[in-house]
Design a protein around this nucleic acid. Sequence first.
DNA 1: CAGGATCCGAGTCGATACTG
DNA 2: CAGTATCGACTCGGATCCTG
Lengths: 123, 123
Amino acid sequence: MLQRPDPFNAQCPTRRVLDRIGDKWAVLILILLEQETLRFNELRRRIDSISQKMLSQTLKSLERDGLISRRAFATVPVTVEYALTPLGRTLAGTVAELTRWAEEHIGEVEDAQRRYDRGEVAA
Amino acid sequence: MLQRPDPFNAQCPTRRVLDRIGDKWAVLILILLEQETLRFNELRRRIDSISQKMLSQTLKSLERDGLISRRAFATVPVTVEYALTPLGRTLAGTVAELTRWAEEHIGEVEDAQRRYDRGEVAA
DNA sequence: CAGGATCCGAGTCGATACTG
DNA sequence: CAGTATCGACTCGGATCCTG
């Protein structure tokens, strides 16, 4: 029904990648790790509103997808560092395009919302 | 805490845009409408697995965000056409970058997953 | 044809408590 | 410090029925 690997119709792999990006926390983590390697609790502090459950869960699936790498050091209290893999880095770059779009057009979106909420259909 | 309009910490507008993109159905609709204007049930048939509830719900919020436009014709049974707005078109373009990434790298992601599931930590 | 309203089960997420 | 395990609240989304 479609020429491309079709993100429609199924649990096609492409769709799975899209869902991954749809994940709010995953995107934030990618953005943070793009700038520097971070430890578990550092990430937690940066994101601030994330629960420890969602953080570890999200980190695990990002690692599974080969987007980030996990390195544990046998220091006195354990130390674990998370960093982007080369693959993750390419994705982070693409995602950055999106956040750029958001920053540039958020004004227009909000205007549209106000108009809509005022009952205007807008041409 | 951050230089950019910070997608962290809050219900910052940029975050809202990201959530929008995170929406699986919204993305699919944008992709379809990028190619041609479609009617309600046409969209329904294309996406196939979407329920009528989610379709109308998603269309409504896309319209509210100024990304698509809705035009109703007073034909015998009503006809409603949905199309991208210029704003929506710019977003669709950006989203296309993402699907391109997905198509190009899905293989690497799946390889990573298999390795992970086999218990390998991977460097 | 294009949708609104309702009901309801499955999955998500946060809070809490505990471990190596 | 870096997690895991459990539980309950809440939400999302599908199925169904109905209308202009």
